[in-house]
Design a protein around this nucleic acid. Structure first.
Lengths: 181, 181
DNA sequence: TATAGCATGTAATTAGTTACATGATTAA
DNA sequence: TTAATCATGTAACTAATTACATGCTATA
C-alpha cells in the first residue's frame, strides 16, 4: 500500500498527539509548511482514507455540542510511519523560489534594479527569519512540556539558520552588484 | 494580462538566446530546475500562447528536413519580462523536502535510525553538490563566450554553496544525534 | 545500421489550492 | 453581542507531471 506524503504528515502529527484535522492543520501551519505544506483539502479526505485502511482509529468525541473526531494511531499506522521514516527510497526534494528565478535572468536588469531585487529577496528572508524567531518560544515550551517534540524543535532551528543563510547570500550579492556598478 | 511563472521562464530563456522549446527545456534542466522546474507539457503550449499574445515572434526554420520553430522576443515581450523582474509583488517561495519532513518526525526513531536518516540526507545533498560542480565548467564557458549569462552562472554558485550548507547542517545533526546516544 | 540526440506536441492523470458552507464555543 | 477560534467538509479549479507518439539527423 503506497501512501501519499500527506498521509505520512498526518500519521506523524497524530503520533505527536494532534488528534483532529483542525489540530493537525494548526501545527502544520507553524511547522512543516515551511518544507512540506498541507491543506484542509488534503487533510480531511486523507484522515478518512487512513481510517478505512486501518492505520488510524477515529472516535466521535462530542465534548459538548461541537462535533469533533479524535484520532489515534493503530499498530499498523505506527508501522507504516516507521517504515516510511526508515525507507531508503530517494528523498523527494523540490524548491520553487521566484527570487532566484528572477536573479537567474538579472542580466536583463540595470545595476540599480539588480540591487533592488536582491534587497527585496533579503527582506523576505529576513521577514521569514523573524516569523520563525517569534514561533520559537512556543516551540521551546512544547518541547519542554510534551515528550517527543525534540526534533520538531530542531527543524525550527534549521529554518532560522536557513533563512539566515539565504539573507546573508542576498546581502553578499547586493554588495557585489553594487561594486560592479 | 497576468502571465504564469512558466511564461516568464520562457521569455527569459528566449532572451538568453534559446530559440526552440527543446533548447529552452535543455537549459532549464541544468539550471532553473533546481529552483524552478518546467516540463514540455508547460513549455510548448505556453510558447504558442506567448506568440498569440504577441510577446514572442515565432518562425519556422527548416534548416533542412527537420521541423523547428525559432522564437525571439518582441518589444512587448521584452517589456513583460522586465516588468515582472522589477515588480514588487511578494516573491513566491516554496520548499518540499522529504528529508526535513522525516527529520521533523524523528522522535519516532531509534538513535541509529536517526543517524542513518541524516546520513542519507547528507549524501543526497553532497550528490547534488557534485552534479552542480560537474555542470560548472560548461556554465563558466557559456558565461565567457556568450554575453549576458553572468547571473545564470551566479545562481549555479548559489546552488553549490546552498547544497554545501544543507550537507553541513546534516553532518552537524548527525554528530549531535550520535553523542546524545 | 543503430543509437543518441534534436525537435514538437498532447492526452491522461495526479496533486494540490482556494473558496466556500456550516455551525458550535469562548473571550472581549 | 460580536468577533475570534474551534471544527468539519467538499466542489471547483489550476497547475503540473508523466508518458507517449512522431520523425528527422548526426555519429560511432
Amino acid at each position: 500500500m503506497q501512501l501519499s506524503r500527506a498521509a505520512y504528515v498526518i500519521l506523524g502529527m497524530v503520533r505527536l498527539g494532534r488528534r483532529t484535522g483542525y489540530e493537525i492543520k494548526s501545527l502544520v501551519d507553524v511547522s512543516t509548511r515551511f518544507f512540506w505544506a498541507a491543506s484542509y483539502g488534503q487533510i480531511y479526505p486523507e484522515l478518512k482514507r487512513l481510517e478505512e485502511a486501518g492505520l488510524l482509529e477515529g472516535e466521535d468525541d462530542p465534548e459538548s455540542g461541537r462535533r469533533r473526531r479524535s484520532h489515534r494511531l493503530t499498530a499498523a499506522g505506527e508501522r507504516a510511519l516507521h517504515d516510511w521514516l526508515t525507507s531508503s527510497e530517494p528523498l523527494e526534494h523540490e524548491l520553487r523560489d521566484e527570487g532566484l528565478l528572477k536573479f537567474f535572468f538579472a542580466d536583463a536588469l540595470e545595476p540599480d534594479e539588480r540591487a533592488a531585487l536582491l534587497r527585496r529577496m533579503r527582506e523576505q528572508y529576513e521577514g521569514l527569519r523573524q516569523r520563525l524567531l517569534e514561533i520559537q518560544p512556543g516551540a521551546q515550551a512544547a518541547r519542554d512540556e510534551r515528550g517527543g517534540e525534540e526534533f520538531a524543535y530542531l527543524t525550527l532551528e534549521w529554518g532560522i539558520s536557513h533563512a539566515g543563510f539565504m539573507a546573508d547570500w542576498c546581502a553578499r550579492m547586493e554588495r557585489r552588484v553594487k561594486e560592479g556598478d
